[in-house]
Every structure is written in structure tokens, then in C-alpha cells.
Write a protein that binds this DNA or RNA. Structure first.
Lengths: 241, 241
DNA sequence: CGGGATATTGAGGTAGTTCAATCCCAGTGG
DNA sequence: CCACTGGGATTGAACTACCTCAATATCCCG
């Protein structure tokens, strides 16, 4: 199975990739590693020499506070480069944690550097990948800073549905949701207790519910409206980059 | 006066720049434009063909909500490329607004593209610039999501002081602060009223105060402690990138 | 079938909001 | 040099969204 399949799907939603470029992406991968649920995949502050492409499962970027509280700054799906930022930064400012059992393709930084020396277009697409991360961060700042708990959770669900669709996961208003309510709380800047209450409201209003490790969205339009969700920030338009 | 001076200072804190590279950066600039306080410099959704380097003044990235509320997702100082993200994204997901009178160096995207074709190292440094933006976004997510109002404002002040120092602005515990309390509120996800009360506390505790359009930090150590401020996320180490 | 993790519910508390009145002060014009 | 103006800052009082703590219920896995 081709471990770069999801990444290619993700990039092809934003630009045209030649076969040659797809091969070059596949050639980036040195090996594949698997991590258990809860495993810390990258530790804040450690020097980085490889970057990891998520192939299967879900991972999160986690920033800890002194008192043990945490804020998750991004949720990663297959096709996401969870620490491509480490290529430029050399040291990450946060942990990356496997939220479920997860498989990663390992990409040595030398190979990325080689791409920047020889393939300008592919370089720009990798750069783009990190720009989309930043755009997601900004949208989350709006959520965390200004939206109600109800809208925060609704917005997270909308984003998840759209991003899963990009890489061909989920269907019929059903998507995998292997996260706990504590995860949702740490993603949204809420407490797990309040997430539980909020989910009850969303379910009662017939917008969305979590059931059996799945996210069921009954009415995406209504959910998006409640969340003020506009997918523009995901930059899905296919154009020369 | 060299309009890329602050940018060079900023990059030289992270890596070594050759004279040749400095010249190449200067050659990026096509012209310089000035904007009035409050002017929208880049409008969300408009196609981008140039990027803007802030030379003088302060600018913010602003995301609006339906009801007129807003969240500011970044505060930009001289030396910051306020919409380098537009080079890859082609369309921005937020407005850029001049908070004060501000001067920008205009960099056409063709010239940036040319850099990606001919100068891998400089390309990586421009990429790095956007990675630092993303790192700042993440730290702000922690602030907005998990810190108290007191710590949010304290953290903002710490970041501002450090980033001003990088580009050689301010001294003796005094830095320019031409923003209103409404700006601070929109940066931190608070109300202006609560910012006012919070500033009173910070002043009373002898940590920091705003006075005469200036930020005065009486005791940076204590302020940093109150904010849980750790500058690691600004990635100031000078190393090969 | 048992046990630990996860989720739910209730009751009470609080940080930050809302609204509205007042104050301050830097410009501006006379 | 002073009065006027308007944006920004401050203050008070009431309110509420979300938190905290704690008890119970449910799910999932071995």
C-alpha cells in the first residue's frame, strides 16, 4: 500500500501534481513506524532530523502548561505532515502525540533539503502544507477566542468532516471519531464536563452526535450555520501554486 | 533607508545570511506604500499577486465574525512579512489592517517565485518566516484557550518586548505601544472592559503598565513568570536552516 | 464477568461579560 | 491660551457561560 496516497489526495485538491512529482514524494519515505495510542511521537525541544507523515490513525499537537492543563493546537488526519514544521524550525515548540494507534512515514530532512535544491514546485507545495496548518491555527484562534462552546464543538466537527472527505475517509454523514471528550475539550479550550453537556445540546438539536466512536452529522448545513463554518480557510481550490 | 533592514535583523537571529542573500532580499522590493491607521491593507478573499513586508508601524491580522466581533490572530512589527502566506495560499483567509500609520515594502509574487527557483537557502528562510508565524499562532492558542486574562495580557507583553528587541526597537524596559485596549482585547479574546481591569492589576502588582502610548515593563522576570512565558516558541537560535 | 477508563448529572462557584454612566485627555479651533 | 470635542479608558452593578468538585452511570476490553 502506498503510504503517500493521502498526501497526494490532499495536495491534488490544491494543485496539479505530475507523476514524476508523485514519485518524488513517494521517494521521500525512508521507512514506516507505528505508535500506540497515547504515545508521544515527537517531544518538544528535541532536535529534529526527520519529519513524519501520518498514514493511518489520528495525531494531535499538544502544548502543556505548568499545572498539567494542555491545549491541543491541531488535529491531524492521514495525509498530514505532523511535524513538517520541524524541518525549518529544527526543534519543535510542542509535542506530537498519537491519539489512536497510528502509522507514520518517516522522511529524513536531508531528503526534504534535496527537494528544496532541485524541485521548486514541490518545495512550494510542501511549504503550502505548512501554510494550511497556519490557516487552521488562525481559524481555531477565532473559535477558541470568540465562539461559544456550542459553536466551538460544531466548528470542530465541520472541519473534521471536510478534511476527512479530502482524503476519502467516511461517508453518508458518518466519519470515524476515535477521540475522547477530553480530547475535544483540550482542542476547544473547554472542560470535559462542559463538552459532555454541549454534545447533549447538539444531539438534542439534531445537528450532530458522537456514537460508537463515530461522528454522525445529521444536518451539515445547520451545523455549519451554528458554527459559522466557512471552509475557505482550508484553501481547497485547485490552482497553480 | 534600507527597507529590508528589520527583516535582515529578524532572519540573522535564526541563521547566517550572506551579503549576496541580503542583496537578493533588497531586490525583492518593488516599491513602498504607506497606509493610514485603521486602513485595511489586505482584504480577505481577494486574489494576491504581491506580498507586503512591514517596514514601519504596526499591523494586525484580523478575522471577523458575523456579529461584528473580531479576533486578531497576529500582531506584526517591522521586519514581519504580513502576508507572505498569500504567496502560497493565493487568497488570504483574513484581513490585514494597519493598526497605526504603517509603511510596507511591496514584493511581487513573481520575484518570490524566482527565489524558489534559484535560491534554495533563501527559500527555506522565507518558509521559516511563515513557520514562525505558525508557532506564534500555536502559542496564542494556548493563551486564548487556557490562560487567565491576567496571564494572557502578561504573555502578550512579554512576546512584544522580545520581538521588538529582535529588530532593535525600544530599550530600558520601554517599548512603543500605540494600540488601544480594544486591540489588546481582540488579540487576547477578552472584552475591552476586562482588559482595563486586568491592566490595573498588572500595574498594581508592579509588573507592567501602559502609559503614554508606551509599554513599561518594570520586572520582566516576574511578568514572564506570571505569564508562563517561554521564548522558545519564537525560535531565536541561530543555526543552519 | 470484572474493572478501569470514559461519560453523565447535579449543585454551587467564579472569571469574565454586558450595559451604562462617567471620566480622561489629546487634538483642534477660536 | 483656553474651551470644546470625541475617542478611549475607567468604574459599578448585575448577569451568565463555563468551571469545579463529586457522585454515579456507562462503556469497553480482557
Amino acid at each position: 500500500m502506498d503510504v503517500t496516497r493521502s498526501l497526494v489526495l490532499k495536495l491534488e485538491r490544491r494543485d496539479v501534481l505530475s507523476d514524476d512529482e508523485k514519485q518524488a514524494l513517494a521517494a521521500l519515505v525512508e521507512r514506516v513506524v507505528t505508535h500506540r495510542p497515547g504515545a508521544r511521537v515527537v517531544r518538544e525541544g528535541d532536535p529534529q532530523t526527520v519529519s513524519l507523515l501520518l498514514v493511518r490513525g489520528i495525531a494531535v499537537r499538544e502544548k502543556m502548561l505548568r499545572d498539567g492543563e494542555k491545549q491541543l493546537t491541531e488535529l491531524h488526519l492521514p495525509g498530514d505532515f505532523v511535524d513538517l514544521h520541524g524541518f525549518g524550525l529544527k526543534v519543535l515548540d510542542h509535542n506530537v502525540v498519537a491519539a489512536t494507534e497510528a502509522e507514520f512515514a518517516v522522511v529524513p530532512h536531508e531528503r526534504l533539503e534535496r527537494i528544496t535544491e532541485t524541485r521548486p514546485h514541490l518545495t512550494r507545495l510542501l511549504w503550502l502544507n505548512t501554510l494550511i496548518d497556519a490557516a487552521i491555527h488562525r481559524e481555531w484562534l477565532v473559535s477558541v477566542g470568540r465562539r461559544s462552546a456550542y459553536a466551538k464543538v460544531a466548528h470542530l466537527f465541520c472541519e473534521l468532516a471536510v478534511r476527512f472527505d479530502v482524503v476519502g475517509i467516511g461517508e453518508n454523514g458518518r466519519w470515524p471519531f476515535p477521540l475522547t471528550q477530553q480530547h475535544v475539550a483540550d482542542l476547544c479550550g473547554l472542560t470535559a464536563v462542559h463538552v459532555s453537556r454541549t454534545l447533549k445540546l447538539l444531539t438534542a438539536d439534531g445537528l450532530a452526535q458522537l456514537k460508537g466512536r463515530e461522528l454522525l452529522i445529521a444536518d451539515f448545513q445547520k451545523l455549519a450555520k451554528a458554527a459559522e463554518f466557512d471552509p475557505a480557510y482550508l484553501h481547497l481550490a485547485r490552482m497553480p501554486r
